[in-house]
C-alpha cells in the first residue's frame, strides 16, 4: 500500500462496499454507522494525499474554533 490502489482493486472494493457479504466486518461496520462511501473516497487517495486532506481539514477546524471563540468573546 505504498501508492494509490489500482483501479481494478478499487472496483472490487467498491463492489464489496455496495453489497457487503453477510456476517462480514464490512456489513457489521455499515450497521454500526460507518459511512462506507467516505471510506471508499479516502481509499482512492495516496497515503500522502490522505494526510494532506486531513491536515487541511484540521486547519479549517482550527479556524472555525478561533472564529467561535472570537464570537463568544464579543458577547
Amino acid at each position: 500500500m505504498t501508492e494509490k490502489l489500482s483501479k481494478e482493486r478499487l472496483r472490487k472494493i467498491e463492489e464489496l462496499f455496495r453489497n457487503p457479504p453477510p456476517n462480514s466486518k464490512t456489513a457489521e461496520a455499515q450497521e454500526f454507522g460507518v459511512d462506507l462511501s467516505l471510506l471508499f473516497r479516502w481509499l482512492k487517495l495516496s497515503p500522502q494525499e490522505r494526510i494532506e486532506e486531513a491536515r487541511n481539514k484540521m486547519i479549517f477546524l482550527d479556524e472555525v474554533k478561533k472564529q467561535g471563540e472570537m464570537a463568544r468573546s464579543k458577547k
Binding site: 479516502w42 487517495l45 497515503p47 490522505r50 494526510i51 486531513a54 484540521m58
Partner: peptide, 11 residues
C-alpha cells in the same frame, strides 16, 4: 490510521 485509509481527526 489516516495514512492507511481511514478518515480520522488527530491533533
Amino acid at each position: 490510521i489516516i495514512a492507511h485509509g481511514v478518515p480520522y481527526a488527530t491533533f
